[in-house]
Amino acid sequence: MKTDSKLARGALEPSSGARGLLWPGIIMVGIITQLPFLYTIYLSLHDWNLMRPDLGVTFAGLSNFGQILSEPAFWEVLKNTFFLTVFCLLLCLAAGMGLALLLNRDFFGKGIIRTLFVSPFFIMPAVSGIVWKTVILNPNFGFSAYITGKLGLPAIDWLGKYPLETIIIVVAWQWIPFFMLVLLAGLQSVSPDLMEASMLDGANRFQQFFNVTIPHLLRYIEVALLLGLIFIMQTFGEIYVTTSGGPGYSSTNLPFYLYRLGFQSWDVGGASALGVLIVIIMTIFMTILFKIMRKTFGGELS
């Protein structure tokens, strides 16, 4: 870290140069993401139902926000989003670590095995949703029904009885490979000297893992968690094709709630207000997370 700041102060470029490099990216992203967002804020203060042009677009003040916050569904959805994100990330981390450890050995066909594990990450979310729903989970002709049938047990209605849990598993199936890859990269970069030194110190495998490997992996874990967080929080395709957010609101997360408001109720004002709330909630959440990370990893973000 020190060397970096020294490097900067060593005047590779003056800071005006830095601006020249930064602005194109900032302008591009700003225009395309922030202008529509400003418009979203504007719309959030209005009542506008696309299906009822006869009612027109009218100023509504903050009533859209009040309405959403007073809706019990909103709080259920918030809770779902939290559970979905947190449990999915934990599952990804644990399983990803397990797989990374399995693959961090020398054995025949390692490349192919890694290829098999990695594949789900590259599949479109909607496709994996459909495949799971049809092939595995369907209680009549899915594979799980076949197995329970062989065992003489009644078929389990996964998406009806455990909708959120099932979606967590489907999403995790897609994201575990990413965690595995990042952690595998981390494992492979642990310096052998360090391992040897700890061995000489008489540490056993577990001590070695917790005292040497894990601290080394912290940065990699952070990379995976942060990226995973942003994407898993936004889970949409899997829900869209499997449960449509139901039964009730039991598998609706914030983005899907937004979809229900915007494209089932055609309530543009309400959906926009929810969009603004999501950004506020996530900003607060991320700020706290960044603070914690800064404390954990010292100084600045990596």
Partner: peptide, 30 residues
Amino acid sequence: LAMLKVKKADDVLFWFISTKMLPAVGVIIP
């Protein structure tokens, strides 16, 4: 952001990441 001296580099980075927080459904109509 990595190599040069940028004021509030962390904030710029955070801003970049924050643009990914609004779900696509939220901006589709605008």
